[in-house]
Amino acid sequence: MATAQETTATRTLDLRVWRQEPGSEGQLVNYSVEVPPEGMVVDALFAVQAQIDPTCAFRVSCRAGICGSCAVRVDGRERLACQTPLSLVRDRVRIEPLRHLPVLRDLVVDLDPFFAKYGAIHPEFRPRPLVAPARITAAERGLVERAINCISCGACYSACDIVGLNPSFLGPAALARAWALVADERDADADARLHEAVGENGAWRCHNLGNCAVVCPKGVAPLLAIQALRRRALWRS
């Protein structure tokens, strides 16, 4: 039976994709591929893999904006490859890996440094002794709502110039997670976390450039979380 995926029209797209073997220098390589007009950037990468070079490496899992595996730079801007419609990109588009992280191969970066910083703020919940789920109204919850949407894609980490200048800066995503816990009335360790989040490599290192908020695909606005952490720290001391 004919299925929904059968398309008649395709569009020719000129891609310039970052290719890099482990242990060597990378470069942009040109590919011309046929893509479905309704496709996303990730469909163009799948097309390279299927039509030209099965070794072209990129990360993808959910292909629906849920897992945060596929962040790359499209014409210099951090985006989720699976959530960026090809209809919005030029006929000649450049695709590069995230910045500030070592390249493992092609578009795949080593996220370990990103997650090491994320781990440094102790992202694990430390509950107040509760026997049943807390009764919390939506209004009371407002403080955390934005920060909680983070899918740890690393886009903000790549877009942040301060991360580039100061490799020990914890970065936007880790601080947004810290805020989500500091503001969570169910968490038992708000003070200790706050201490870490505004410590030497924390919220005060941020220069309010705001790139994180611009590129975040989930509307997390890490900058607002960072500012909230600072305000909380100021009034606590």
């Binding site: 509950p127 939506a138 969570d184």
Partner: peptide, 18 residues
Amino acid sequence: QELEVKVGCFFDRNPDGS
């Protein structure tokens, strides 16, 4: 219960907070 109380998930609430 465990996901909420121990792991820190937060599921949607009714107006009364449940």
